[in-house]
């Protein structure tokens, strides 16, 4: 049995709900750490950055599902919705951390930053792009929209992923490598989707 087959067999037995459970538990644990001194000298930044990074990692993970099936024969599609929804949940928490803990609910400065600071603007684009996706990540919406329209709508993921990665690159000082790696991963995963499928016409 190939590795792909083995993974597929295991995936059939493993349900998706632990992803929601762990996804919900991690921020609780993060916040708990923040109140008890476990996140270092500046827990506000630590929570904000950790949530942003987790969200971006999950978005990248979500983008891996389709190419894995197409190029490696590994089918993890049943986890995709959970990964996407947890990613959205983290982006929302990341945004709330910024608004409440970092900005201290200074509304005028927060609005000013959304309008004037490119990295915040781009982050908001990512958050807004994910919203219709989160709202339609349920069976009822898939049925209502029909598979084709649903798939088209969910291409907004690409916009959110690019926005998230550009946001990261735009907020750092100097040029550390990490944001480039994420942007590279996102662009690479999108490029894979542009490779034309073989054999359609020949068959």
């Amino acid at each position: 049995m190939s590795v792909a087959d083995r993974i597929n067999r295991a995936a059939r037995r493993l349900p998706a709900w632990p992803i929601y459970l762990i996804g919900a538990a991690l921020p609780v644990w993060l916040f708990w750490q923040g109140t008890t001194g476990g996140l270092g000298i500046d827990p506000v930044k630590a929570i904000e950055q950790r949530l942003g990074l987790w969200a971006l990692k999950l978005i990248v993970a979500g983008l891996c599902i389709t190419p894995l099936r197409r190029f490696a024969g590994v089918n993890l599609i049943r986890y995709r919705r959970a990964i996407g929804l947890v990613a959205f949940f983290y982006v929302v928490l990341h945004f709330l951390t910024w608004l409440v803990l970092d900005m201290g609910l200074l509304w005028s400065q927060a609005l000013g930053d959304i309008a004037k600071r490119p990295y915040v603007t781009v982050g908001m684009v990512g958050l807004l792009a994910l919203m219709p996706l989160a709202l339609t990540s349920n069976d009822w919406s898939v049925r209502r929209l029909g598979a084709l329209r649903w798939r088209l709508l969910h291409r907004l993921t690409y916009l959110a992923a690019i926005a998230g990665a550009v946001h990261f690159l735009w907020l750092v000082k100097a040029w550390p490598v990490e944001p480039f790696l994420y942007l590279g991963a996102v662009l690479g995963l999108l490029a894979l989707r542009a490779i034309p499928r073989r054999g359609r016409t020949a068959a």
Binding site: G34, T35, I41, D42, P43, V44, I47, L101, D102, M103, G104, L105, L106, Q109, G112, D113, K116, R117, P118, Y119, W170, L171
Partner: peptide
Amino acid sequence: VDHPRWSQATERRIGGGLFAGR
């Protein structure tokens, strides 16, 4: 005078805990 990428009008005092604000 703001830094082009963020406002300089306020600051976060390190050590204030989670809810110290700006």
